[in-house]
Design a binder for these strands. Sequence first.
DNA 1: ACGTTGATTTAAAACGTTTGCAATTTTCGC
DNA 2: GCGAAAATTGCAAACGTTTTAAATCAACGT
Lengths: 347, 347
Amino acid sequence: MPARITTLKELATQLDLSITTVSRALAGHQQIALKTRERVAEAARQAGYVPNTAARTLVSGRSGFVGMVLPIRAPNLVDSFLGEFVTGLGEGLVSHGTDLILAAVAQGQSELSVLRHVVESGRADGVVVTRIAEVDERLAYLRERNFPFVAHGRLLDTDFAYNWLDTDGAHAFGEAFDMLYDLGHRHFGLVTISEPMTFRHLRQDGLAAAITRRGDPSVRLDVATAPRFDRGARIQAINRLLHAAKRPTAIVALFDELALSVMEEAARAGLTIPRDLSVIGFDNIAASAYAPPGLTTFDASIRQCAREIGEMLLTVIGERPAAPLTRLVRPTFVSRASHGPAPTGKN
Amino acid sequence: MPARITTLKELATQLDLSITTVSRALAGHQQIALKTRERVAEAARQAGYVPNTAARTLVSGRSGFVGMVLPIRAPNLVDSFLGEFVTGLGEGLVSHGTDLILAAVAQGQSELSVLRHVVESGRADGVVVTRIAEVDERLAYLRERNFPFVAHGRLLDTDFAYNWLDTDGAHAFGEAFDMLYDLGHRHFGLVTISEPMTFRHLRQDGLAAAITRRGDPSVRLDVATAPRFDRGARIQAINRLLHAAKRPTAIVALFDELALSVMEEAARAGLTIPRDLSVIGFDNIAASAYAPPGLTTFDASIRQCAREIGEMLLTVIGERPAAPLTRLVRPTFVSRASHGPAPTGKN
DNA sequence: ACGTTGATTTAAAACGTTTGCAATTTTCGC
DNA sequence: GCGAAAATTGCAAACGTTTTAAATCAACGT
């Protein structure tokens, strides 16, 4: 094994050339004689030379990294979002050799302060922001700072222009309603969360819009709300829905975890799905395929979305487009066995 | 909003001090007068100064990053491993303000070449390696390079000393056998994969060791092997086990995905779990709780393990201990409803 | 042989930080 | 008040790369 060449200077000395020439040769500049370029490339390959990132970043002002703040998670919460998202992002970035930086948030620190640190320290050329809140200081900061970023999700304030990719939850929830309505359902339940996330509104509004569009005054919608991570409160809210004097025949949940809870509670209450109750979720998490009788849901294809986000961000960084890049991805319907015709009169 | 101070020079000018003094003051050197230290700290806070990572890395030789190569994934495969692992790693690293770098592997590139690039470019002070293969060139490279790393998993070659944390699959599989044996089972099935991963051997050996330890010659073990990502072959292998002339009464799967497939195929074959067949998995993925009747398994607590790996790596980087750090984590038994007494004589 | 052009290479500055060493200021015993 | 020691601060080099501006070289027409 030959001694590893670690710096440009060493490589230059070995080749009896100046650092400048070697640097340019490796960068493929036309002004360097072709013969020299080839000679340098070969020597670099042989020596296993890899340019030092820090030095390159320092002088060029570009780190070749894209940053993301690790979402804070409840101690035992498992969901596949992060893994899928990171995998997709990696796939989107790899074409340009851009790596991903993940910064964790320490106890007591704010997510914004970590984001700030990532940006101001020059670690990243751009960042990805997920889980958009109704009032999101991260987006405000990034825009004011004029720092390249792409958000996964939208703000409700449509005047605030920025780069985003979002899953069209509104459309999906409208689709769910239409399908259930056509199956005879008139009394609906929606299980949602109390956290101020924008997707909550978008999806609920999509449902409401579809109801309005249908124009049938006999349609009724009951909404159950609970904090996202409070299992007890969630169960309670679901049971209020299930044990109301008049129970919905179809329940749409903001996302699969909630839908699975609905199915569990329904089973506990002696209801058979989909005979007595139709349930529809959103996200298509792995467990949805296994939970009996199989949850009908919408696939948000996180991985593919993240991949596109990565590509968008590279564009934003490279070209700094004047108009914001936006993209609304329509989720695909995944028909399983948790929905069916509305129960007839009496059971 | 005050104009942002971005460099030490600006800060120094504003304070009418030298760059050196400001740098040292921020680093908390005792030699700088306390009053000065406080004055500098306050000014830096006010101005929102964040040191430039590249410059710092360049001179100090430390990047403050820990690297990891993103595992290559089949296009539609979803598992929660990566998300949990990354979350845990972040938690383990955050105390030292160390961030995580994730490098994706491009089509046609080898994982080793990406790892090499991460190491040689000085992007990271240490790396984490997962999914250890029987012959793992990554470990060989890192050791030869004498680069700090911690592996999640062990090699079979115990002469090769390095830092690792592993889940004690051998113990778990022994435990599973003992429990099933005590429930009357004598005919066992093992569903495993054909990929050359070391955990496959460790777990299978743990099972075999427990059988030997019991010393009952009537115990029989049938092994079904299939490529990890070939769903068809997996189903086939499982069905060979289920439809053999003499069928095992208990099947242990290398990990939960396989166990879930076993449960599906068993149901398809008209078998009731656990009456006709006991099934035990490993990992405790989310779906295991939902798949009827609830999969009995072992929780590998990936997140916690990754957290410890992060902490170990920080130790390795900071202290370069002479003896390798190793840690064997015993998985916890998760008793659900997929196991029970061996079926009696005829059904 | 000699300027001139075009091709090729190089010296040196710059990026923002840390740090060895030296310079300056303060403190204190007498 | 004076000198020495202690406390505090600053100069300048270094990290490895990219890039501007300038130097060198080869070739060519005359």
